[in-house]
Nucleic acid binder design. Structure first.
Lengths: 220, 220
DNA sequence: TTTATTTGTCACTCATCGGTGAGTAACAAC
DNA sequence: GTTGTTACTCACCGATGAGTGACAAATAAA
């Protein structure tokens, strides 16, 4: 008898702006939470990433995040699981009509593809920034998923091409990838990196030219 | 009469571990706050960097931070002011007994010096991580101070050497610096970067060798 | 229909944050 | 001493964070 909901209905008989037929569908809710989390991370970064913010963005109660994902950690894991498909979705597999005859051809192409893909994907940028900013269990798992996907992609694209003799390709490529990631992060955060402006397309052309030159310098 | 402090003294008559003759000295307190802030930033990163944390670390009331520095922004500015001297303190000016005959000689040397300096300075690492993670007024000021100091150092060390014709040295150097910064940040956060382990001295030798090769590749 | 389970909401605790106003303790000038 | 200034502390505010237990409502099972 107490708190009989019927006595409250007249209160809201004003024309509701959003009736929002929220169907009861766990699957849909889970997806909504995941998408909201990814969007939130992409837009706001990891600073304001938390249970409350995700729930707010999803438009549901945070309790559901605990129930369905076991808290923020589980949710981050779910994001990580999605990440495996990132490279596949984001980076073209074809060679853009080029014939990649040498390892240098390959790495030049891959560098530019990776640069572009990262520039185009705010979520991935946020994750990379997160990776270098703290070292928690959450980040570690995300990071692992990302690095694995990236390594697979590199390996797959490599085909039968081999790096020049006497060059530690793993180390060199790590540095190249580091450079690309940091350039993109810097640009995204402050529009420049070490005195090099990175705003206009022309700026980026300069950066790409320099990157190509560097790649060609090591790999010929 | 109310709240007479004398009635409370018996509570803390246990042997105090730190009597800490805190003399009343504004200058010393200001320094203590600044040092605590820098230490806190270096140790914990920017995540937990705030008024309360700094005050706790300093062992004083946060009110003093407002009074002496006008809040966290002013404190960050003070840290930034210190930063100008970083390069001078941290990176040796001499050439390590080498004769730097070419621009390639120079950049190889500078790259390794910068790498080492960054590896050795946790505060600077945190700041770099901060720079690529958010874009607030605080960070922008810190970032500016750092980048200015770095540019000055580069210019000073360059002397009369000039880059090879046809190479956009600004862009190339930006990428090199980006690579170094990211490599160090990655190592610091996760002990590896893009599949390259970065823990043991041997790991770092590999990275340095690769870096040298890259520098020589562009600059000869 | 009655019952049980799933789905979602609400209301709360506890901790910590940035920020502020008012008060206390030391020291200098008189 | 008394007075006034400076250095410093304390106690509180509102907001927001993570996390939890209880309850309402829709749906499925009986």
């Amino acid at each position: 008898m107490l708190n009989d909901p019927m006595v409250l209905t007249p209160i809201s008989d004003a024309p509701q702006a959003e009736p929002e037929k929220r169907v009861r569908d766990r699957g849909a809710t889970e997806k909504a939470i995941l998408n909201a989390a990814k969007a939130l991370l992409a837009e706001e970064g990891f600073q304001n990433f938390g249970i409350n913010a995700v729930a707010r963005k999803t438009g549901c109660d945070k309790q559901l995040i605990y129930r369905y994902y076991g808290g923020l950690n589980g949710l981050v894991d779910a994001i990580g699981a999605d990440l495996g498909t990132w490279v596949k979705d984001r980076i073209p597999e074809d060679t853009g009509g080029m014939f990649l005859l040498t390892y240098g051809d390959l790495m030049e192409r891959l560098s530019l593809l990776f640069l572009q893909a990262l520039r185009d994907d705010p979520l991935m940028r946020r994750i990379v920034a997160w990776e270098v900013s703290e070292n928690t269990e959450q980040v570690r798992r995300l990071s692992e998923a990302r690095s694995k996907a990236l390594a697979n992609w590199l390996e797959r694209m490599r085909g039968s091409l081999t790096p020049p003799k006497g060059v530690d390709a793993v180390a060199v490529n790590a540095i190249l990838i580091a450079a690309i990631q940091h350039i993109v992060l810097s640009a995204s955060a402050g529009g420049q990196c070490a005195g090099l402006a990175l705003k206009t397309p022309k700026d980026w052309e300069k950066a790409e030219t320099a990157l190509k030159r560097i790649v060609r310098g090591v790999y010929g």
